[in-house]
Design a protein around this nucleic acid. Structure first.
Length: 479
RNA sequence: GGUCAGUUGGUGAAACGGUUAACACAUCGCCCUCUCAAGGCGACACUCACGGGUUCGAAUCCCGUACUGAUCACCA
């Protein structure tokens, strides 16, 4: 059994969007499931569309995701070069195209666009280009080539019969050959067309499983015709359904839709993003949804890739990101959130205590800032927020309660969440209040908010005794 | 327009022709509780785009219709 080799072949034209990343992920998983190789190949034949720094984005994204490639422009390998423009320079494509001509499987064509257009007009709807250049004699062709007349190389296609191929996802697909045009292999500038370069590269790199978007489904028969012309083995095809923005549109960078980089900036973790997108268009056999990359590789099964475009649901990603945050090792979690905490409240407070307070409350890192900004100081608020149904409080009652709270806290010796809570709870009992009736006004006084992370006593611990008493005093004055 | 493909709740989705059509997100209740979360429990598709057919039995198989998408370049 041949070693599985898959490839991810992006064009360096900008940001890495989610659909693209998912294709890379699937290619990686398919390779790793069987201990195969995952190869990165940069498709930069369209020099005009290249974007500065785009290659680095590709490297970085793969790295951040843990999608380590075994071969590629930056890590080398035995099948290089891994950059298409380099392969072009060495004349690989041109050589193979001419070889096909020599074999009688392709032909040289001098037609101009106008010639083709003319035929299209004449034939109407069921257009099928009949290339007059196929009738040219060898000598004439040679003469015109020698004279420097520009030409392209087109594949020969017999219009009779059908071509079919098996796709692991979509099953067997058959088309009639007369619907297949005699595609250009080598352009008049001597560069290969994208499709041709792809076939050559995939074959030369021993790619066993071609993983790509389902927009290639209709051109796959043409690919196969090239493989057959050379007498090469046809790879396994795995066409993936698209990741959609909504019912009608695919996710795309052109629309400014979420790219991987954007999601990181919004406070999502790479592992969570990867886990989530794995589930867009693929379903594991178990009911479980949380998988590490290694676990995904073990569980992955091409047969369970779906055929329908899946809508990217940021809400579910958000939930899953929260699961990842909550499942983290304590120390790693503290390290993760510390920069976000220090960025908004500085280093005056214990970032670990704040981390504890927000632990169950954040789904994304970017929520931290707003959640804890009150530690810096209480913002202006309306007295009406002292009114709370559950606590049965109103501004009037809050004032008397805060007085009790203040007196109680004043006498607390060792200052921590537990001691604060205990003494307040005792006081509440003595006054026959429910705990919440004591705590809620205190929370508002300390945070200036009706909703705050951690609970009143945890906030008090973080603020420290002096600051807590000060804030309660201010609140009383305000009432 | 030709060709190819797809269609299960708001979303991701499961289902070897026989289940009350899983599970998860979201939503809505309830419980817990020092607010909000987190956690626990529960509700949520009288039905699988529609119409025929095959079958004792269809979301599952066949045919047709509708709708959606992809593709028809010397772009990648």
């Amino acid at each position: 059994m041949k070693k599985v080799r898959t490839r991810f072949a992006p064009s360096p034209t900008g940001y890495m969007h989610i659909g693209n990343l998912r294709t890379a992920l699937y290619a990686y998983l398919i390779a790793k499931k069987d201990d195969g190789d995952f190869i990165l190949r940069i498709e930069d034949t369209d020099q005009g569309r290249l974007v500065e720094g785009a290659v680095d984005i590709i490297y970085n994204t793969l790295k951040q995701c843990g999608l380590k490639h075994d071969e590629g422009p930056d890590v080398g390998g035995n099948y290089g070069p891994y950059v298409q423009s380099d392969r072009m320079r060495s004349g690989i494509y041109s050589r193979y195209a001419h070889q096909l001509v020599d074999m009688g499987k392709a032909h040289i064509c001098f037609c101009k666009e106008e010639d083709i257009e003319k035929q299209r007009q004449e034939q109407g709807d069921s257009f099928y280009f009949v290339d007059p250049c196929k009738l040219l004699s060898k000598e004439e062709i040679q003469k015109r080539v020698d004279a420097g007349e520009p030409y392209v190389i087109r594949l020969n296609v017999e219009p009779e019969g059908t071509t079919s191929f098996d796709d692991e996802v979509y099953g067997t697909i058959t088309v009639e050959n007369k619907t297949l045009d005699e595609m250009v292999l080598l352009k008049s500038d001597g560069f290969p067309t994208y499709n041709f370069a792809n076939v050559i590269d995939d074959h030369l790199m021993d790619i066993t499983d071609v993983v790509r978007g389902n927009e290639y489904l209709s051109s796959t028969p043409k690919y196969n015709l090239i493989y057959q012309a050379f007498g090469w083995d046809i790879p396994r095809y795995i066409h993936c359904p698209p990741v959609m923005k909504d019912e009608h549109q695919k996710l795309s960078k052109r629309n400014g839709d979420a790219s991987f980089q954007d999601l990181l900036l919004k406070g999502y973790l790479p592992e969570a993003i990867l886990n989530y997108i794995a589930l867009l268009g693929w379903a594991p056999e178990e009911e479980r949804e949380i998988y590490s990359l290694d676990e995904l590789a073990k569980a992955f099964n091409v047969k369970r890739i779906g055929t329908t475009g899946a809508i990217f649901d940021i809400e579910k990603l958000t939930w899953m990101n929260g699961v990842y945050i909550r499942n983290m090792e304590k120390e790693a979690y503290y390290e993760l959130v510390r920069p976000y905490i220090e960025e908004t409240v500085g280093t005056d407070f214990d970032s670990r205590l704040i981390g504890d307070a927000i632990h169950d409350r954040i789904n994304t890192l970017s929520e931290i800032k707003d959640m804890i900004s009150f530690f810096n100081g209480v913002e202006e608020y309306d007295a009406s927020i002292f009114t709370n149904k559950k606590a049965k409080t109103d501004p009037e009652l809050a004032k008397t309660i805060l007085k009790e709270v203040y007196d109680c806290l004043k006498d607390v010796g060792v200052w921590n969440n537990e001691t604060i809570f205990t003494s307040l709870a005792e006081k509440a009992k003595a006054l026959s209040y429910k705990n919440i009736t004591m705590m809620y006004p205190m929370q508002v006084a300390l945070s200036g908010r009706s909703v705050a992370p951690g609970g009143a006593t945890a906030i008090a611990e973080i603020l420290g005794k002096d600051e807590s008493l000060k804030r309660i005093e201010e609140a009383m004055n305000r009432l």
